[in-house]
Structures are given as C-alpha cells and as structure tokens.
Nucleic acid binder design. Structure first.
Length: 616
DNA sequence: GCAAGGTC
C-alpha cells in the first residue's frame, strides 16, 4: 500500500479525487490501492526549554543551547495550561498506523521549505524508516497532479531543503527564546518582554515611524491659486513654484491679472498637453493585498480578514487563502471563463461579469513562473448562500478583484494646462475615457485628488480667459503617516527593499519579513505583549513598546537585515553548503545577544507610580 | 510565561 500525505485535508482530497479514490475514513481516504492522509500544517514543533531541563526562567540557564533539539506535539491552551492538542495527537496516531502499513510514502506537502519540514518532523518523530518519494507541484489542478505523479522525485533530493528548514526553525528558537528570557529577566518586568527575528523588527518599524511622526516639525509654505473662467466653467490652476515666505508668494499674488484688478482677460493659455494613459488592471489578490484592501475598505484587521477567508475556504467558496502569489498558471486560467460565467448571478458584479464573459481576457495575472506554493486567491464557482455581511464583503473583494484582473485596461486622458498671468500656473485634470476594469467597483482613486480638477473645460492654446478669483494659500509639509494595518502589512512585505547590502536585499526579495500565513499573528503578538495599541485605525507603540525599542533598536535582532542574512545562508544550505557552520554562527550570536540583553535590559525599569515602563 | 512557522 502506498500512502500519500498532504499538508492539509483540502490537498489530500484533491489528489484522491484525481485517483478516483472516494472512500472516506477517519483522518484519511482510500481507494485504488492508495491511502491519502494529511497533516494540519505543523503538527510538531521544537520542544519548549523545560523539555531539555531548563526549568523556570533563570539567568543561570542562559543562554539555553540544547545539544540536540527535540520535537513535541503542537500545544493548545486548556484550563490546565498548555496541553498536547488532542486533534493533532489523534491525526498523528492515524498517520503512524498508515505509515506502519505502508510499502512506500509519497510526500505531497506544499512545495516549499516549510512543507518539507512539516513532513520530515512527522517522519522523524514517528521514527519511520519507510522509503519516501516527493510530489512537487505548484497548482492542484487535475493535470498538474497527474503530471506531478509521473514525475515523482527521490525523497533524498530534498534533504538539503529539509536542512535549511530545520536550521531556520532552530535559529528562531535559539535567538527568540534566549533573547526573550534575557530581556524579561534583566528588566525585572513582571510580564513577558518577547523578542524575535520577525516581531522585533516589526516593533522597531512601528516605533521608529511613531517617533518620526511625533517629532516632525511641519514647514510652512505658500502657493497662489487662480480661477480662470471658460464660458462659465471655472477651473483651478496653482502657481508652478512653492514659496517659503508669505512675502514671496504675495509678490506673485499681486501680479495676477484678475478681473478685480482691472484685467478682463488676464489668463493666457500658453500650453496645453493632453495625453491618453493606459492603466492596466490590478493583479489578483494574494493574502496580504486582500488584508490591506479589507483594512482600507471595511476596517478589518489582518487577523479578522484571515479568519473570514479561512471560513470561506472551508465552505469551499474561495481557493487557498494563505498564498503569497498574485498570479495563476495557464491551467488555472483555463477555468477562469467558467468562474466568470458563475458570477453573472452576482447582485453587484453581474453586469460586469456578463460583459466580460466571451470577451478577450487580460492575462496580466497569468504567469506560471510567479506561482509559488499556491496561486492567487480566486472564487471556486460554488454559489455563496446567505453569507454574513462580513463574509459577503470579503467574498465580494475576491470576486470583484477577479473581474478587475481579467478586464480591459482603463483609458484615461491626463490634461495639463499652463496658464500665464504675471507668472506661471498649472492646472491638471484626469478624465476616464474608457473605464475598463474600473467599471467593476466604479470608484475613483482617493489619492492625490486634492489639487486635481475633476474635468477641465476644452481650451485652446493662445486663448485668453478672465480670472474670476485668486487666493494665497498657506500650506504645511506633512510627516509620513503612522502605520495602520494596511500600510504595515505592505511594509512587512517590502521590508528588505531598502537594505543597502545587495546580497541581503536579493536574499529577501521574495520573502520580506514573516510570511503571508504569519503576518496577522505577528501583529496580534505585539498587541498581546502590550507593545502596541490600536488607536482608531493606527498602530502606535505603548510606553512598554517604546522602552523595549530603546534597548534593542541598534541590535541586529531589531533589523530586517537579520532575516536577509539568514535567508542568504539558508539558500546556500539548500544548495549544499555546510549546516554546521551556520549553526555555529547562530550559537555565537545567541551568546552575544543574550549577554548584551542581560546587561542592557537593566536600563529598562518599571515606573514605580504608573502602569507603564520607561528607560531610566 | 518565551520564537516563527503552518493550519483546523
């Protein structure tokens, strides 16, 4: 009997379907001489410190450097504290009995570093010795699955991938556990002051932005605006230059040849520029872009959006949600016309779906090479039925984006009018000529609408118009805004883009900080630790968060570069570099950061009077 | 009491 093990039930079901295996058992399926089982993500994790004999939290234990890491069953909270998750324990028992019966195992966990780790941890925990082969596919269409099974790889081909995954896992444990205890103990804080490769740079980003924003000194500047009138249709033009002083602006203001100053036709149209611009449709959604949109549109937190999506996924209404790809392959694209057909019934988008069905679809989001473990989020074609308003809203964002992504370009005309009246003024306006994909939500860009004219009248070069009004405007420079969930998610995705070192930047280019599956929980961790607060839609640091930031801000653990550095080394390990060298470096770093925090943490004191914490 | 990673 051959046993196929997938990362999650949905994938096991898809594969079983291709094989024509339909017999459902408890925790697996069978048929045609195969058995199809699954994990639920990571069933096993590196054991907690006490399982190596590091009891309690004590400076004497630090740094904790277990000679050999152990695996333990994923834990869940109960009234008696953390216990082995019973559903995980049960599934592991099922997997064990299937592996015991197996002649061969086929590994069908997700095609990536963590997918490999999920299987290997199970395999080694169960002390299994059976031979295994690897299925390596990046989409779960019937054809992709069949092709993958014709091309099974020897399991040992992925030994170095497992090595890199195991190193990632151990390194996070060593640095995170030790740094957390070191800072918590040395600061004398009652609660946990956690630190980690991902959470601490994230906290640093929020703190640094908050301090920049708070310490920002706005600069005043001045502009002059005029309002020419073309046969009763007025528009606004702004001085081409900004002025540092009111006096400079006043000179320009006084020179304006407006009607009130005795100039019946003081606006000279000296240049006219009208350019059509094609705006291609947006890419399909991955988890992060959807979380950002849901935060902007509905104020949902990253965590809420993920939960709603998981729910829709379990109801088979949308495809796998924790994806980091905004593309689909050609095989999936072949099914898109059908999906669009199904959306004809949709109350809001039905009209656009009808328009799009039969039309030539944009292939901007179709690129098999850019599909990683999973493709972009799509609807499944399953009709939604009586969704709660929140679920409906998220479903609509997925469905609407699909229609947008396969739609035509939006054609705009961007017009710029240069007006001379004592000095130069500029008016700009954008007119949508063919809405294309923008017809789906029928919304306008809310960005930089401020100084734009909705529509500009038709004017001619050389024409002279009356100026009916003018104004001297006083403006202020603005700081970068505080982070909210949407802008923080974006910043986490692109963290690394600003790293100076080219190799580290390259190593992080596809990853950023954290992963799509974990970013929501990183934000929740910072909230749980009382490092940050939600203030309206913004994420702002608490005194505790700022105090921790002050202690660690110059340490490697607070820099996105640390992840870049690790990713570079892990990729080298995947291609065969020494595991021992990297592990030795991590141990050295763990000793150093632990010592450093035991010293520096003393500067972080609990304020005697208040609830907060501050650096003394 | 602690990391980051995955998922029901």
């Amino acid at each position: 009997m051959k046993v196929i093990i997938a990362e999650k039930p949905s994938v096991a079901r898809e594969i079983a379907k291709v094989f024509g295996a339909t017999t459902k058992k408890d925790g697996y399926m069978e048929g045609k001489g195969y058995t199809f089982t699954w994990a639920f993500g990571h069933l096993l994790q590196l054991a907690a410190p006490q399982e190596y004999g590091y009891y309690g939290w004590s400076v004497q234990n630090l740094p904790m450097l277990p000679p050999k890491f152990k695996l333990s069953i994923r834990k869940v909270k109960s009234k008696d504290g953390m216990i082995d998750d019973p559903s995980v324990k049960k599934q592991l028992d099922i997997i064990k009995s299937l592996f015991d019966e197996a002649t061969e195992i086929i590994v069908a966990t997700d095609a990536g570093r963590e997918g490999e780790l999920i299987f290997r941890y199970i395999y080694y925990y169960l002390k299994c010795k059976k031979p295994f082969k690897r299925l390596w596919i990046s989409s779960q269409t019937d054809e992709a699955i069949k092709e993958g099974f014709r091309n099974l790889k020897p399991g040992s081909d992925y030994d170095t991938l497992f090595n890199s995954a195991h190193c990632r896992s151990q390194s996070d444990w060593l640095v995170g556990m030790n740094a957390t205890q070191a800072l918590s103990l040395s600061s004398g804080n009652r609660g946990v002051l956690s630190l980690g490769r991902v959470q601490t740079p994230t906290l640093a980003m929020i703190c640094s932005r908050y301090l920049d924003n708070k310490n920002f000194v706005p600069q005043l500047y001045y502009q002059v605006s005029i309002q020419p009138d073309k046969d009763g249709q007025v528009f606004k033009a702004i001085s081409v230059n900004n002025f540092k002083t009111k006096e400079e602006a006043q000179v320009i203001f006084d020179k304006v040849e407006d009607v009130a100053s005795g100039f019946p036709q003081g606006a000279h149209i000296i240049n006219l520029e009208a350019k059509p611009r094609k705006e291609p449709p947006p890419l399909l959604h991955d988890l992060s872009s959807l979380q950002q949109e849901a935060n902007k549109r509905k104020g949902f937190t990253a965590d809420q959006t993920l939960n709603i999506l998981q729910n829709l996924y379990e109801g088979k209404l949308v495809t796998y949600p924790r994806t980091g790809s905004r593309y689909i392959g050609d095989d999936v694209f072949a099914g898109v016309p059908d999906l669009i057909e199904k959306l004809k019934e949709h109350p809001d988008f039905g009209k656009q779906a009808t328009l799009l069905s039969g039309a030539k679809l944009s292939k901007r989001s179709v690129n098999a090479k850019k599909v990683t473990d999973h493709h972009a989020i799509l609807t499944t074609g399953e009709p939604p039925y009586q969704l709660t308003p929140d679920k409906q809203a998220v479903y609509d964002m997925v469905a609407g984006r699909m229609l947008e992504s396969f739609h035509q370009d939006c054609i705009k005309e961007i017009t710029k009018i240069t007006v001379e009246s004592g000095s130069l003024f500029m008016a700009s306006g954008t007119v949508i000529q063919t809405p294309g994909w923008r017809a789906v939500f029928n919304e306008t860009d809310d960005e930089k609408k401020d100084e734009e004219n909705p529509t500009l009248p038709k004017v001619q070069q050389g024409e002279k118009l009356p100026i009916t009004d003018k104004a001297l405007l006083e403006k202020q420079t603005k700081p970068k805004p505080l982070y909210n969930e949407a802008s923080l998610l974006k910043a986490l995705e692109t963290a690394g883009k600003e790293i100076d070192d080219e190799e580290l930047r390259y190593a992080m280019k596809d990853s950023g900080l954290g992963t799509p599956a974990t970013r929501a929980s990183i934000i929740e961790t910072l909230l749980k630790r009382n490092y940050i607060l939600r203030e309206k839609k913004n994420l702002v640091p608490t005194p505790t968060g700022l105090a921790v930031y002050q202690v660690v801000k110059n340490q490697q653990i607070a820099q996105a570069e640390l992840t870049g550095n690790w990713e570079k080394r892990l990729e080298e390990i995947r291609t065969g570099a020494s595991v021992a060298d990297f592990q030795e470096e991590i141990k050295t770093y763990t000793r150093a950061i632990t010592q450093e925090l035991l010293r520096e943490g003393k500067a972080l004191k609990i304020e005697p009077a208040g609830a907060g914490v501050a650096v003394s």
